[in-house]
Design a protein around this nucleic acid. Sequence first.
DNA 1: CGCCTTTGACCTGCGC
DNA 2: GCGCAGGTCAAAGGCG
Length: 246
Amino acid sequence: MENLQGDDHDEAHAAATMIPHFPYFATAPPLAEPAVSTTSTDDQHGAPLEALQPPLCNHPGGLDGPQLTTTATAAAMPLMLPAMTPLDWQSLLQCLQVVPGPELQQAAAQADQYIGENDHGDQAAESSGAAGNKEKQLAKGGAGRSGKKKASRPRFAFQTRSDNDILDDGYRWRKYGQKAVKNSKHPRSYYRCTHHTCNVKKQVQRLAKDTSIVVTTYEGVHNHPCEKLMEALTPILKQLQFLSQF
DNA sequence: CGCCTTTGACCTGCGC
DNA sequence: GCGCAGGTCAAAGGCG
């Protein structure tokens, strides 16, 4: 029955976004050439991972740490994101209280729409089709039990080449589940933000085809500051404040 | 003691 | 209707 990438569908359909000139990354080395896939989104679903996977770069101990990748589902355009510190861009937006511009909002909307419309597509790749719509899956597991309809939330997937499954994004996460995934030796882990008012979740899974790559899928947006980033920024902000007096 | 991970059970939707 | 697979729950145990 199962014919292919039971785990690959995640990065294929995980909502993604383009991050236009985000200042945090501006100091990074030139972005790697995105491995642009000009295939349609439908093609993406059935496409083997390699088609979606940008040339991840290894920077062992380098200034960048893991090379982060988002896969832009709507535009079918992966984007390389050099990670200067182990923080994700959502965290940065949150902590810096940056209001996502129209591009981001549009991308998020597209991502939601994409998930809603096309989940069956990539799931069809798992010909058993048991998985069905992922959003529905999400809804039925948690919200389904509580009888609430789950609102679609933006999702973002990062691919990192790392020995460590856990990408330190500055937030605290509690693991609430782990499931074996079809056609993958590595299980998928489910995490929830430990902040009591925050309902952000993330899934962490290694690719079956390249176990050195970890796919982290975020769902939702944190509604609280990122403690680690604030810690890191506080001295800088103080210094700026001091300098601005002159 | 509080927080976390582990893990089996459970729920739900989909395909056959 | 049944089986499968994904997602979540919750009890139990570990760790600092």
